[in-house]
Amino acid sequence: MSQTVHSSGDHQPDENRRDFLTLATTAVGVVGTGVALWPFVDSMNPSKDVLALASVEVNLANIPVGQAVKVMWRGKPVFIRHRTEREINEANEVALNELVDPQADDARVEKKEWLIVVGVCTHLGCIPMGTATGEARGDYDGWYCPCHGSHYDTSGRIRRGPAPKNLEVPTYTFLTDTTVRIG
């Protein structure tokens, strides 16, 4: 159907040049197309207004000892528990080698009496029970995830059940003794 373009032989040097040129052009074109796709991918990352709301400030003054609250942070609940002396001791008494995801209580809190964790079960993302007074807190006095039966202790660490990791600790800073900024 087509005619032959080059007879091989005489055009050898030109052939090489064309190959190089074609190759280089293809490379530039492919790179350009790849870069052009980035804005589309990037547009699905959190937008600026979403990022601007990525931190919340919480007043702790109204949380009595022994109680916990849930606050919304980045569309997820964060549990803030004002721990009792007994709960703090429970968290510190357990030997690290007994833990599924070994982590000392010290490494998970900034102030002993305040435990702040993301309230999302590390198994498949359900919200564990145990924050509101009267809810089942599981066998380790922390939280209990009703979906698949994971038990968390008073440091939010996984003790039994299918969850692989401890409840995540968000970054937070105490602005004063009674206000904390999460995120």
Binding site: W38, P39, F40, D42, S43, S47, K48
Partner: peptide
């Protein structure tokens, strides 16, 4: 136009 990453471009 303002907040979505590269939204203005798209």
């Amino acid at each position: 136009m303002r907040d979505v990453n590269h939204g203005w471009l798209i």
